[in-house]
Design a protein around this nucleic acid. Structure first.
Lengths: 244, 244
DNA sequence: TAGTGGTCTAGACCACTTT
DNA sequence: AAGTGGTCTAGACCACTAT
């Protein structure tokens, strides 16, 4: 086909195809869980060869945005409850297994962003945010306490949800209810001492060392959508990372 | 070529090619820093098409075992001091920059493995190991204290090296002196309280929360080659992870 | 100029799923 | 039987590096 048509110096053709696919994911032309057109069909639609489409999809699969199913087709990744946990939750038990924590929402309300929050979420000072405080437990034992801060522009109605109705795996909710797909996150870990309140919530002595996880999650288009600050007991569970 | 010749049900052809390349890396047919034969040459040698070789090399590049240099060729990754740090060292300063820590070796000796050490390194009970205790500092300020345990079978002579001669980036030494390439590691993080000795070495109060990093490093052939237990101050530096 | 990796195309055959 | 992704091949042209 006519290569010139697609390439005003924007790099390799397969990356342009990849970006067009991502755009279709952002505007929900193809929604999570849905199937994409077949590779030959996409190739024709984009005016490139099947091999080029394949390479674009390869990258998207390796970035966990798509899943291939041999003989069936390619579908848009979904934040099923399992995936949500398996993908971003890095705490494992002594046997290396991921636990299934249960949430207890302590508070869920709307207010203006504090300075640090606005900075972290790239919001203007004082922009409205939704704040969620909760604890998560495994087998009845408290594991962590955390605060989530979200831009109200994206998640405004969240503050009206009854705390008890907030699901355990929020990313599924973000996706199904607000059309926001979290697909990348950066975490920063430090060791801190438990405050009085944290100690009480986690059933440990004040001053106990806790693992603080500071996570900033971004959506498909690179916009920060959630700031999450967790403090975890690590007497049983540990944070696991594979370095390649 | 004759596909049957290479495939007794061992999976895709390009993975068999990949394994053959890895074997050549293990037995040092191609050493770190050296250049591989060109892709057409490899294709001929392996009796497959260039595209298949390319796909095998693609995976090895994405696993950081090879580096491509357009117009020149493909070389075997080397644990340069920078790479060594950039690749496995996850602590960053407040600006997100990786520091260049300086090492101070406290001890380096040989003894029999303790039970936990043998288990972790897949050694028989009481097998000889080399133990290194050291601290690492940034800008004169202590950052972490750590103990490394290595199988003496692989690193026997290490115990005879004068502590002052041990380089800052050990993985370079492992590779150049002992032919051991570390290419994968798993880390487990917990929060712990500083002991008296750690507090002294790190210039903090006893009981200060520290980030404990438990790292098991494995070589090309999947054998554990180093167990490293670090305890870090996180008042300035933080452990950073990207979740994709 | 020759050789290398980087990209793109085109078409074959296989394994799997669906109808 | 038809359609899908998975693999493998073959050859074109480009960008870069060395000489």
């Amino acid at each position: 086909m006519n290569v010139e048509r697609m390439r005003p110096g924007l790099g390799p053709l397969y990356r342009q195809v990849k970006q067009r696919v991502i755009r279709n994911l952002i505007d929900e032309t193809w929604k999570p869980g849905e199937m994409l057109p077949s590779e030959p069909r996409l190739a024709e639609a984009f005016g490139v060869s099947p091999g080029t489409v394949r390479r674009a999809l390869d990258e998207l699969v390796s970035e966990n945005l798509l899943v291939r199913q041999q003989g069936k087709g390619t579908i848009v990744c979904r934040h099923d409850p399992e995936r949500s946990l398996f993908h971003f939750f890095r705490l494992v038990d002594p046997a290396g297994q991921r636990p299934t924590p249960a949430s207890l929402v302590l508070a869920c309300f709307r207010r203006r962003a504090e300075k640090a929050e606005a900075a972290r979420l790239s919001l203007t000072a004082g922009a409205p945010v939704v704040v969620i405080d909760r604890t998560r437990s495994v087998a009845g034992r408290p594991l962590l306490v955390e605060r989530l801060v979200l831009p109200a522009r994206l998640f405004g109605e969240l503050a009206q949800v009854a705390p008890a109705d907030l699901p355990n795996t929020l990313y599924t909710l973000y996706e199904e209810r607000f059309g926001v797909t979290v697909y990348r996150a950066a975490e920063q870990l430090t060791a801190v001492a438990a405050t009085e309140r944290e100690a009480e919530l986690l059933a440990v002595a004040p001053g106990t060392p806790l693992l603080e996880i500071d996570r900033l999650a971004t959506s498909l288009d690179g916009v920060p959508v959630e700031w999450r600050l967790s403090r975890c007991r690590t007497d049983v569970h540990r944070y696991r990372v594979e370095l390649v």
